[in-house]
């Protein structure tokens, strides 16, 4: 049994009076891939953003390898938000890949990669460039070092974004619909890279509509609807023989 990498307990997230996550529990073991599926607006992105402290939460707690994320426990049993600097420190160990890639448009591919480790003094310039070359080769983007993101296809941008997220050697990778903005024929090139990472033992949380990927790669699948976890379990259970009507209804629509 491997150790718990990510654990979210009783997460409550509100935007104004609107409750977007109500009492969500979620757990990923080290080295495993966990897929999150669900209809649009069900709170999948919000959950991912809470895991990375990009959102403040109204209830519950997120832990990465046991360490409380985003907050400091106070003596009275409450929580106090961490300083921006401390939040940034915690985020160093979590990589994130976005639907819209979010590469820095004013930097070349290699600058996108080396930016964080050099600015944060994790690696010297030459070491970072060497590291970048390794990762670009892993994602099949060798030779594009000097290109600007605008000159790359969506699939290429997303592969660079994955390499960029890997530069900080994160212990966990979060993916928010990494292939949803891609042309159909570009989807597999990104999924292939993600499969490679999964095989290499990366701990990954993947929000996706690619059920084929979930079936093939995921150790766990979580189905969310209306801000709550409806069903969670192995891909065979959740995707193969779902127990809940809502899951069934969703799957029949997606397939």
């Amino acid at each position: 049994m491997s150790a718990v990498a990510v654990s979210a307990r009783g997460i409550v997230k509100r935007f104004g009076s609107r409750t977007v996550l109500s009492n969500v529990d979620f757990e990923v073991l080290t080295g495993q891939v966990s897929c999150v599926i669900g209809p649009s607006g069900s709170g999948k992105s919000t959950l991912l953003r809470c895991l990375n402290s990009l959102e403040e939460i109204e209830g519950g707690e997120v832990r990465m390898f046991g360490e409380l994320q985003g907050y400091l426990p106070t003596p009275d049993g409450g929580y106090r938000r961490l300083s921006p600097g401390r939040l940034a420190e915690q985020r160093e160990q979590v990589g994130m890949v976005f639907q819209n890639f979010n590469l820095f448009p004013h930097m070349t591919v290699v600058q996108n990669l080396v930016c964080a480790p050099t600015l944060l003094r994790k690696e010297t310039g030459p070491a970072a460039r060497e590291h970048a070359a390794e990762l670009l080769s892993m994602v099949g983007m060798t030779g594009y070092e000097a290109s600007y993101p605008a000159h790359l296809s969506g699939g290429q941008q997303q592969r660079v974004a994955i390499a960029r997220a890997m530069m900080m050697n994160p212990r966990v990778l979060l993916f928010d619909e990494p292939t949803s903005a891609l042309d159909a024929e570009r989807v597999s090139e990104v999924l292939d890279v993600m499969k490679k990472l999964a095989k290499a033992g990366k701990t990954m949380v993947v929000v996706t509509h690619e059920l084929g990927f979930a079936r093939e790669v995921a150790n766990d699948v979580t189905f969310m609807d209306e801000g709550a976890v409806v069903e969670a379990g192995s891909p065979a259970e959740v995707l193969g023989s779902p127990k809940r009507d809502r899951t069934r209804a969703f799957l029949s629509k997606v397939l």
Binding site: R49, N52, L54, P84, G85, L87, A88, E89, R91, E92, Q93, V94, G95, M96, F98, N100, N102, L103, F104, C115, A116, L119, L120, A161, R164, A165, M167, M168, L174
Partner: peptide, 16 residues
Amino acid sequence: INRGQTEAASSLGLRP
């Protein structure tokens, strides 16, 4: 600037 830029940068651990 798209909000995603701030989020991508923050998620890398870059300081404010």
